[in-house]
């Protein structure tokens, strides 16, 4: 499903733009590292509660993670 693809791509892009490892992001969001890795490989569809936590760990609004266009170009990576 397209939204899962967008999530995987945006998540990876925002995470690396912030210089965070999967482990560091997992720590901040209070989730398991293997879960972050699975999301980036489109393995899971996460609940919006978790989406919310991951978004705040990255300093973005949750909808940014589902945007069809890559987020990094629009100045959204500035915190």
């Amino acid at each position: 499903m397209a939204s899962r693809e967008h999530l995987a791509r945006n998540l990876k892009e925002l995470r690396t733009a912030r210089g965070l490892s999967q482990e560091a992001l997992a720590d901040k969001a209070g989730i398991d590292r293997t879960y972050v890795s699975a999301l980036e490989r489109r393995k899971y569809s996460l609940s919006i509660d978790r989406l919310d936590r991951i978004a705040s760990s990255l300093g973005v609004e949750p909808y940014v993670l589902l945007m069809p266009t890559p987020p990094s170009t629009e100045g959204l990576i500035q915190m």
Binding site: M1, A2, S3, R4, H6, L7, S45, L46, S47, I48, D49, R50, L51, E61, P62, Y63, V64, L66, M67, P68
Partner: peptide, 25 residues
């Protein structure tokens, strides 16, 4: 309920919108 991203996708398709529109506050 805390819907999943897959459910957001289904709802968005039914409403003919982008999934992000469902969670913009």
């Amino acid at each position: 309920v805390s819907a999943s991203v897959t459910v957001l996708g289904k709802l968005a398709m039914a409403l003919k919108i982008d999934p992000c529109e469902l969670i913009i506050s």
